[in-house]
């Protein structure tokens, strides 16, 4: 790894030889990653490269087959319950209840975490304000277009003030304009000191990241700032870097 050595207290996420097998298939194959506090860390790769599997292990939703890791200073094998309360998670799949109103969805996600009762109302107002969903709070969630639902998802994932926000292909089926607006929200989250760990396969989005990690066949193929990567691969765009790395893939 050519990443500069970082003081471990500056790291939000650190893994050593993290591996997950499903039967004979090795989805994540001994990855070592280091994510610094407050950075936007892009996790890139083709479909099936192991992005979601790796992320689910970091969140404590999936047990690793071998290897170790720390998230927010806690062990991902033994301290999953402490990790859970310090992270926010927004999945590519829709994770809101369509039959509830926005207010109810938001209220529920606050209640699911032990936010002190006195602070709940203020937290919710704040989350709704940051994501701009205030005028729609009493609408039924399922009735709103995707872009707004994504904003609500973000509000729900951040209502308990997580120190790390995991975003699993957050802009999956959103139009380009909403995508740009959504990235503005992500960047303002990061500017408040939240570490952002985001998977995507949109290479234009990868340009917004402070650092990018390319995953190929469950292994880390290369890591660096978008500029470093482009220089190293003599490429104009991250798209070309991706194609250069993906050519060596055996899967897919």
């Amino acid at each position: 790894m050519k990443t500069p050595e970082a003081n471990s207290s500056d790291l939000s996420i650190r893994t050593r030889a993290l591996t997950r097998r499903f039967g004979t298939f090795t989805a994540v194959d001994g990855i070592d990653i280091e994510v610094r506090r407050g950075e936007i860390y892009g996790f890139l790769g083709a479909n099936g490269a192991g992005k979601t599997t790796a992320m689910r292990m970091l969140c404590g939703l999936l047990e690793p087959t071998s290897g170790e890791g720390e998230v927010a200073g806690f062990d991902i094998l033994r301290e999953t319950s402490r990790i859970r309360t310090r992270i926010g998670y927004m999945s590519q799949k829709f994770s809101l209840y369509p039959d509830l109103t926005l207010r109810e969805n938001l209220g529920l996600s606050a209640e699911l975490y032990d936010i002190p009762r006195r602070q709940v109302a203020e937290r919710l107002r704040d989350a709704a304000h940051r994501t701009g969903i205030e005028p729609l709070l009493d609408r039924r969630t399922g009735d709103l277009p995707w872009g707004w639902q994504q904003r609500l998802s973000l509000a729900c994932a951040t209502a308990h003030h997580p120190s790390i926000l995991f975003l699993d292909e957050p802009t999956g089926s959103v139009d380009p304009l909403s995508r740009r607006e959504f990235w503005d929200l992500i960047r303002s989250e990061a500017s408040r000191g939240t570490t952002i760990f985001v998977t995507t396969h949109y290479m234009d989005e990868a340009e917004y990241c402070d650092r990018v990690c390319f995953l190929v066949d469950g292994r880390v193929a290369d890591v660096g700032t978008p500029g470093e990567l482009k220089r190293r691969h003599a490429a104009q765009t991250l798209q070309q870097v991706f194609l250069d790395l993906a050519r060596k893939a055996r899967r897919s």
Binding site: L61, S95, S109, L112, C156
Partner: peptide
Amino acid sequence: ETGTRANLQLSDL
């Protein structure tokens, strides 16, 4: 099926 299960799994509950 909808993926909302993860919300509950990741919570303090």
